[in-house]
């Protein structure tokens, strides 16, 4: 072929296209979130709740463990007790602030650990496929035989009470569903040609997972695990409510609800207060998760 022909065939580097501002996937998600005022508001509340738990020692007006036989079950606004006192005369507001530390930790930490473990197992199962997939997923299926609360109760019951065992059982409860979500997402991505193309360049399995799989499955996994936080908070306080999680005299929302239950005929409003804390936190996490889901639902 002559030089002239080659030059004719040389395409001109000028496909018509205006210079666009290029946004990555996560930038797009951030951009969409910035205009979702509902989600921003509830996200703000979530941060407020977390901060008030972290700075409980600075915010709490009283010592949450200080009991007093004289001031038992006083109503809202009694003396300095802004939200009244519990059955041992302890300040409810202080206990709710401190209780957030344990309740939130028990809500968030198990989901986080389960996301890492379950996500990893799911990605491995989905990417490797074959026998590995079978083994991992069949083990996970065993846990699917139980509704989540029953499973948490059963594991905690077997391990015994306490914060650590409670978190352990919650983690075990959340690993299977997260593993399944990760597995589904991964096996979908795995069959796309760009993974095949990456293999054709001679890339190692590890490199392909890190560079090509992770970025494409992280979204669905995070959406799912964010929706689990509120479930986890509910089950965690449920466990404490049954006496399987936090043990007295630690302040915890579920446990407070349990001990105050005896007093519904004396101070009905006070008895419902710790539940309000659980409810507000759970609703906020749920709505933030919903907002995240719709922001991440970008077809790219």
């Amino acid at each position: 072929m002559s030089d002239a022909t080659v030059n004719n065939l040389q395409p001109k580097a000028s496909e018509v296209a205006p210079a666009l501002k290029v946004r990555s996937y996560w930038q797009t998600v951030g951009y969409r979130l910035r205009y979702d005022y509902m989600t921003l508001f509830f996200g703000f509340v979530v941060i407020l709740i977390i901060l008030s738990a972290i700075f409980a020692p600075l915010l709490a007006p009283m010592d949450p463990y200080q009991s007093s036989m004289l001031n038992r079950l006083k109503p809202i606004g009694y003396k300095d007790f802004i939200l009244g006192t519990d059955e041992l005369g302890r300040d409810i507001l202080s206990r709710i602030l401190y209780g957030g530390r344990i309740s939130l930790t028990m809500g968030i930490l198990p989901v986080f650990i389960a996301t890492v473990i379950g996500g990893l197992l799911g990605i491995i199962a989905g990417f490797v496929g074959g026998r590995t997939n079978m083994t991992i997923m069949r083990i996970m299926d065993v846990f699917y035989a139980f509704p989540s609360i029953l499973l948490a109760v059963a594991i905690s019951g077997a391990l015994g009470g306490g914060i650590f065992n409670g978190m352990m059982s919650l983690t075990l409860v959340f690993i299977p569903p997260l593993c399944r979500v990760a597995e589904t997402a991964t096996s979908q991505v795995r069959n796309l040609d760009f993974v095949e193309a990456a293999r054709a360049t001679g890339a190692s399995t590890f490199s392909i997972i890190r560079v090509h799989i992770l970025g494409n499955v992280l979204g669905p996994i995070l959406i799912y695990s964010s929706s689990l936080v509120s479930v986890s908070i509910l089950i965690a306080s449920g466990l404490s409510f049954l006496g399987l999680g936090v043990t007295p005299p630690e302040p915890d929302w579920g446990l407070m609800l349990n001990t105050l239950r005896q007093a519904i005929y004396i101070q009905p409003v006070i008895c419902a207060l710790p539940g309000v804390a659980i409810l507000v936190t759970s609703i906020c996490f749920n709505l933030v998760s919903d907002g995240l889901r719709s922001a991440m639902d970008v077809r790219m």
Binding site: L257, I264, G275, I283
Partner: peptide, 12 residues
């Protein structure tokens, strides 16, 4: 509905 702790609702 999905956010309410049902044991709390029971008490209420």
């Amino acid at each position: 509905g999905v956010s309410i702790p049902n044991y709390w609702l029971a008490i209420v």
